[in-house]
C-alpha cells in the first residue's frame, strides 16, 4: 500500500507471479486495497479463500487488517523482491510517488544500508506530478515528450517550489516543453544519486521508473553503467511482500 499507488502481487508456492494489480491509493486505503486484491486474485484465477498467507507493506501497511496483520517495511520488501530477480550484490533505486529509496544488498541478499529521501518531494513522483500540472500536460505524456528533447534545460534548485518557478521562467522564455521535461527527469535522477553511493549492480524500481522508461535510459547514461529492471518494476515491493509471506512459517496450523 504505497502513499500514492496500491499494488498487489499473488504468487504460488514456487514464487511464480500469478496475478497482480495496481490502483491509485486514494483516500480510503482499505477499500482500495480490497479492490486491488480482488483484481489481482481474479487475474490469478483465485479468490480470497485461496490465500494461504499474506504480508502487507508500505505507507498503508496497517490498513489491511482484513487480509493480514503481518507487515514488513517497503525497504525490506523491495530488497527481497529485487534480490529474487537478481540474486547478486545489488543497489536498488526505487523512485516512488511519495519517496525514493536506495538500498544496498550484499551478495547474500542481506541489506547493508538504505537511505530514504528527506523531507521534501525532490526527486519523487510527487515532484513530477506537480511539474506536469504546471506544464499542463499529463503524467503519461512525459516520457514521450522527454524523448523528443533536443536541448535539455537543467534546473538549478532542489526545492520543488523553486523548481516550479524555474519551469515557469522557461515557459515564459519560450523554451520547448520536451526540453523542460527532460530537465525534470534529469533533476529526479540527480536527487536520487545524491542520496548514497551505488555499491552493487543497479536495479531500478517504482512507479516513476515503470511509467517512464526513458528515465532508466538517462540514468544509465548518467551513472555510466547498465541498469537492470525487474519484469514489473512497480510490483517489486509487492512481490517482495508476497515472498516474505511465502517464507513465513505458519504460526498456528
Amino acid at each position: 500500500m504505497g502513499a500514492s499507488r496500491t499494488k498487489v502481487a499473488v504468487i504460488d508456492p514456487s514464487g511464480r507471479l500469478l496475478g497482480h494489480a495496481v490502483k491509485k491509493s486514494g483516500i480510503d486505503f482499505s477499500v482500495t486495497a480490497a479492490a486491488c486484491l480482488d483484481a489481482a486474485l481474479e487475474m490469478a484465477g483465485a479468490s480470497r479463500e485461496d490465500i494461504v498467507r499474506a504480508v502487507s507493506t508500505g505507507y498503508g501497511r496497517g490498513n489491511v487488517a482484513f487480509v493480514t496483520e503481518k507487515s514488513k517495511t517497503e525497504i525490506g520488501c523491495l530488497a527481497k523482491g529485487c534480490y529474487h530477480y537478481f540474486p547478486e550484490a545489488i543497489t536498488v533505486i526505487d523512485i516512488g510517488g511519495q519517496d525514493n529509496k536506495i538500498i544496498n544488498l550484499d551478495a547474500a541478499g542481506r541489506r547493508s544500508s538504505f537511505k530514504m529521501n528527506r523531507k521534501c518531494a525532490a526527486g519523487t513522483g510527487a515532484f513530477l506530478e506537480e511539474m506536469a500540472s504546471r506544464l499542463d500536460i499529463s503524467l503519461e505524456e512525459m516520457n514521450g515528450l522527454a524523448r523528443q528533447s533536443q536541448e535539455m534545460i537543467k534546473l538549478g534548485s532542489y526545492c520543488t517550489v523553486f523548481s516550479a518557478t524555474e519551469v515557469l521562467e522557461s515557459i515564459r522564455n519560450g523554451k520547448r516543453v520536451p526540453d523542460i521535461v527532460k530537465g525534470l527527469f534529469y533533476s529526479v535522477i540527480k536527487r536520487v544519486l545524491e542520496m548514497d553511493i551505488l555499491s552493487g549492480q543497479v536495479v531500478m524500481t517504482g512507479g516513476v521508473v515503470a511509467c517512464n522508461p526513458y528515465i532508466v535510459e538517462m540514468a544509465e547514461e548518467m551513472i555510466g553503467r547498465p541498469v537492470l529492471l525487474p519484469e514489473l518494476p512497480q510490483l517489486a515491493g509487492a512481490v517482495g511482500a508476497a515472498l516474505y509471506a511465502l517464507d513465513d512459517k505458519p504460526e498456528t496450523a
Binding site: E74, I75, R111, S113, M116
Partner: peptide
C-alpha cells in the same frame, strides 16, 4: 511516518 518506516527498516536490517 518516515521516522517509523526508517526505524522499522533499520531494525529489520
Amino acid at each position: 511516518e518516515q521516522t517509523k518506516t526508517n526505524v522499522e527498516a533499520f531494525i529489520e536490517q
